[in-house]
Design a binder for these strands. Structure first.
Lengths: 308, 308
DNA sequence: GATATGCATAAGGGAGATTTATGCATGTCA
DNA sequence: TGACATGCATAAATCTCCCTTATGCATATC
């Protein structure tokens, strides 16, 4: 089946001309001149070896062969058009958000409903990914990530700074008569003592080289789990305050020290493919996230410059 | 429905790539490089705003959206291909000969069967046109014409010179005791006395300004009819000898004088659209006509030069 | 006739398609 | 575990062919 098609631009011109029965109107539809259409039809006729149109005075008519071909070509183009229409429509109204678990659970979960109420025409699909997984940059419209960097060409917005500070349940604090000095924390079990955040925070608190046993594990991404263990009184967790607002306000957790740290200016970022920069669904979601953050009193940063 | 399609070259590249799941192979099929395919896919992805392929190590995979689009695009292209295939096939095997009635009746009619026996895969359709009609240059593969000239750009072969000389039935000749001098003809009724051929022939025979009453009518094109009337003894007709061979040989008609004339070098021509110059069906038919002519002892002229 | 409409054609320019020449990542095989 | 092969991405340069401009011609229409 090496049957190569004639030049597609010629086929397209023929398709339009056969519908309008006018080179001029076909040109209008295609955004080109009458002369261009005339030329393309000639190309196709030469290629096929027979006339597609009969040129009459001030009008054209399809020849028998032309008419026969036209119906099928018009059909095929109509299929093509609807295929692209459908896919862009579906794509315009479907928003796939690939978010790490921390943000998904601690932030998106209880707010998403509001977004959906505000934008009932946008279908949202949250695809969470765990601490050791990669977001799916290919199939996502928006990626919310902390350590996993999106491609350098993606526009990215800082949404939440990755500050951290110890948190624990009031009951656990009482077991040692309350927390007054950083050292007090060492009397209690730590949730995930290998988290490097601990080292950083203790150093910032003036305690260098505390000996934390256990095995290494990744930071950020499992805060939901760690928070739950802290709430359950199983130990002290080192968490981002903003994500614990509810637990703090309700008294499930306490933050014994004002001191928060931040490693390497790390933050959570919202990013998306450059091509979607100005698409409606992206704009709606991005603006909504910003509004929510502002509403929480969080600073909303300018988008991070895109390289290239 | 102003939904313009993305660039067709990009769609074509995507179609091939989605079938091969390889830019390299798609390039091979389309006769271009892998880089070009890669570029076109990128164009399409940028245009659509989402990825069509997931680039893996040494292979590519369709994304969900890509796969969805691919099935429909492949379908549409397959329709297009078969549409063009069918039309060229039909066109390659169907030969439409638009011939004036004279040649159709006096020449083609009793020979065509042989051509069809020799070339059973070529379907021949003879479309005769009368003396005052135009051949359909748009819908014909071959036009056989005398006075009606084909477009100047069409290759044309002279097939039969438009010689003419009086013919009549032997019985009619006997009614005046036989024909010995041109003047004898004037004693008999002429079939179509207004035919200018009569004036020319009588002049050539040395009889200037004979007075021929009646009304004008067109020459050539109705020879079949005129010959029949002559055979029936209704009068003397002025005919092209080659077209009367059978009647002459069988004695139905006699040609009283050797003298033949020819106006303005007129001839019958076989012509066809330039694009079909080397198509099989044209070649078969043209060569067959030439062979038949040669077989009849007719000189076969070189094709008439095409202007432009 | 005068005008308007519609297609054909030639010449020329320009944008986008393609190639060339790389680089990079990852399988594969010794 | 290197050396090599395979396959895609990317940049720069080139070129092709598609389109426009400008015109002519034929024929409807007034």
């Amino acid at each position: 089946m090496s049957s190569h098609l004639p030049p597609l631009s010629a086929i397209r011109a023929f398709e339009a001309a056969s519908r309008h029965l006018s080179f001029t109107k076909a040109g209008d539809e295609l955004g080109m001149t009458q002369a261009a259409v005339s030329y393309q039809i000639k190309v196709l006729e030469d290629r096929l070896g027979f006339q597609l149109f009969t040129r009459k005075a001030r009008k054209i008519e399809l020849t028998d062969s032309g008419a026969q071909l036209a119906t099928r070509v018009v059909d095929a183009f109509s299929s093509l058009r609807s295929a692209f229409e459908d896919i862009s429509e579906k794509n315009a109204s479907q928003l796939v958000v690939s978010s790490n678990t921390t943000f998904a659970v601690n932030w998106l979960a209880y707010r998403l409903f509001e977004f959906q109420m505000k934008n009932p025409d946008v279908g949202v699909r949250i695809v969470p990914y765990g601490p050791n997984a990669e977001p799916d940059f290919n199939e996502s419209d928006i990626v919310i990530s902390a350590c996993k960097a999106p491609p350098k060409t993606w526009p990215a917005h800082e949404i939440v700074r990755a500050d951290f500070t110890p948190m624990l349940s009031p009951k656990l604090a009482e077991t040692i008569g309350g927390i007054s000095k950083p050292e007090d924390l060492l009397k209690l079990p730590l949730v995930d003592p290998q988290d490097p955040w601990w080292q950083m925070w203790f150093e910032a608190a003036g305690l260098a080289n505390v000996d934390l046993s256990g095995h290494p594990s990744s930071r950020m991404g499992s805060q939901a789990l760690e928070a739950n263990r802290a709430i359950a009184g199983q130990g002290v967790a080192i968490l981002t305050p903003y994500f614990c607002r509810t637990a703090l306000e309700s008294g499930q957790l306490i933050q014994p020290f004002e001191l928060t740290c931040r490693a390497n200016n790390e933050s959570w970022y919202l990013s998306y493919p450059p091509a979607l920069r100005s698409s409606r669904k992206i704009r709606l979601f991005r603006d909504w996230v910003h509004a929510e953050l502002k509403n929480d009193g969080m600073p909303v940063a300018a988008p991070v410059a895109v390289t290239g």
